[in-house]
Design a protein around this nucleic acid. Structure first.
Lengths: 115, 115
DNA sequence: ATTTAATGTCGTATAATTGCGACATACTAC
DNA sequence: GTAGTATGTCGCAATTATACGACATTAAAT
């Protein structure tokens, strides 16, 4: 019935959704945590630590790399992945802004009549 | 999470991924922002404000409701949706913890040799 | 009671994600 | 050179997400 396709999505909304999608799989969350915990960037050891095949882990790595959340550097035979902490900090701010905005007003009281 | 081998990941990782997935679509981000901006919870007006069909918006609403991020209250003919700000605050903390942990160490210097 | 309006659900078509084996590539070691 | 190792890419199958029209349901209005 209603056909009011007025507003498309803002770049801000798309950007947030893009990052959220990157975090929308436990394996990718685990990869980031792993890279954060290791002092040195590890490479294929990541695959060994996850309950997934090497191929699948590689795919997840490529996904994170495509968004520049992680970076890979070839070092002879192995590849060193590391977090892009600068970008992660930026992303953190974006998420914080989103959540702060969303929780600013107590829109609905617990049993409240807001309508 | 298709073919989910999610069981192998920690509950913390799964929880974060679950919420991230809910935010992994601009429409759902837009819905949350919309509900936050309105003083009163709106209902089908949400559909009118998004460049999607009413059916599709309804689906997105159900997805957010399934995670309890939003709540719907029937009020006669219309349905009032509102944010679960309490849960959103919790989720915000989870994300903050994740990002803080990920950005604590400067794993790789900008042009740095970390390996 | 009949009409109208607001919502949700169902079915379905298309696209995207997930997972992995098989193959290709690139580098090291001998 | 040949052999072995570490990675990434390709192709395929199964699953899930996205989008929307058609139908069902519910409540207000007449």
């Amino acid at each position: 019935m209603t056909y009011a396709k007025t507003a498309a999505f803002t770049e801000e909304q798309q950007q947030l959704a893009r990052i959220a999608k990157a975090l929308a799989h436990p394996a990718r969350v685990a990869i980031i945590q792993l890279l954060a915990s290791k002092k040195t960037c590890i490479s294929g050891d990541i695959a060994a630590e996850l309950p997934l095949s090497r191929t699948t882990v590689s795919q997840h790595l490529q996904e994170l790399k495509a968004l520049d959340l992680i970076r890979g550097e070839i070092d002879g035979l192995t590849v060193c992945y590391c977090l892009n902490t600068e970008l992660l900090r930026q992303v953190h701010q974006q998420f914080t802004a989103f959540f702060v905005e969303s929780t600013a007003n107590e829109v609905c009281a617990p049993g409240g009549s807001c309508c």
